[in-house]
Design a protein around this nucleic acid. Structure first.
Lengths: 124, 124
DNA sequence: CTCATTACTTACAAATTTGTTAGTACCATA
DNA sequence: TATGGTACTAACAAATTTGTAAGTAATGAG
C-alpha cells in the first residue's frame, strides 16, 4: 500500500473493485494481518508491544504498516501518551466495533467449512 | 496461488494465519475477484462466458484461476456439458450459500463505512 | 476451406505485498 | 558508561499476485 503505480491495469482494477460495497469492505480488512489485529483489540485498547507479543509471527514493520492503514481507514484509534518510554495505545473505532458480529459469523462459517473439508478428505 | 515456495517465511506465515477460523475464512474468499464472482452466482448457475461478460475488467486468465480455486475449496460447483461449442456452468455450492447473509452484512457495513468517510472528508 | 465460438492453457512480465536487517530517539536503571 | 525498553522508520530483497499476449481443440456455419 506504499507507492502504487497510477494507471497500471492493476490499480485501475483495484479502483473498479472497490466500487462494490462488499469488495470495498473486504479491502479494508483484507491483507494478511488486519483481522488478526482487530480481533486482538476486541477486548479493549492495547499497546504496540502487547499486540506484537500477542501475534508472534508478525514483524514490527508489518504491524506498523497494518496499524497505519487501519488508522487511516478509520477502523482503529491511536493514542499517544507523553511518557518515557513511549506508550501508544490502539483501540477499535466505532465502525470497527460494528463489524464484530460479522466477523464472528465469518469465523463460525470458517470453522464449519474446515470441518466439511476434513470430512471430504477423510471420505476419499 | 500457483507455485509457492515452501518454507519461505511468507508461506510459514500463511499457514499460521489460517489456523484462525476467521482469517482462514477470509483467505477462501479473499483475492481481488472472488467475492465479485460469488455475488454473480447468487441468482443461479452461469457459464464461463456469462461470468466473463458480467465482470468487464476481469481477464480470462484471472477468471479461470479464481474459479479453479473456488472449486478446489468447495465453494463453487462446476458442471461440464458435453456439447460443442463447450458449455461449462458454475454455481454456488451449499457452503457458499451459507455465506450469502454474511456478505450482505459486510456489504451493508461497507456502505455505511463509505458514507462515514465521505462525511469525515467533507467536514475537514 | 476459412472463420467463429467456447472454455480454457501457457509463457512471460509487471505490480504489489510481505519479510529482513539495521537503525533512530528518548530516558531509566545497573 | 553500557544496556535495555518502547515505538517506530528506512533501505532493500524475496515472494506472491495480477495482467498481457498468444495459442489450443473441437465443431458447425458459410
Amino acid at each position: 500500500m506504499s507507492k502504487r503505480k497510477e494507471n497500471s491495469s492493476n490499480s485501475i482494477n483495484r479502483d473498479y473493485i472497490i466500487e462494490c460495497d462488499l469488495t470495498y469492505a473486504i479491502c479494508l480488512v483484507g491483507g494478511r494481518w488486519k483481522l488478526l489485529i482487530l480481533c486482538r483489540l476486541e477486548e479493549g485498547a492495547m499497546r504496540f508491544s502487547e499486540l506484537r507479543r500477542s501475534i508472534p509471527n508478525i514483524t514490527e514493520r508489518m504491524l506498523t504498516l497494518q496499524l497505519k492503514e487501519l488508522e487511516r481507514d478509520g477502523l482503529v484509534r491511536r493514542t499517544v501518551y507523553a511518557e518515557v518510554p513511549p506508550r501508544v495505545e490502539y483501540e477499535l473505532a466505532h465502525v470497527a466495533k460494528e463489524l464484530i458480529p460479522v466477523w464472528k459469523q465469518l469465523s463460525d462459517w470458517g470453522q464449519r467449512h474446515r470441518n466439511c473439508r476434513m470430512q471430504a478428505v477423510k471420505a476419499s
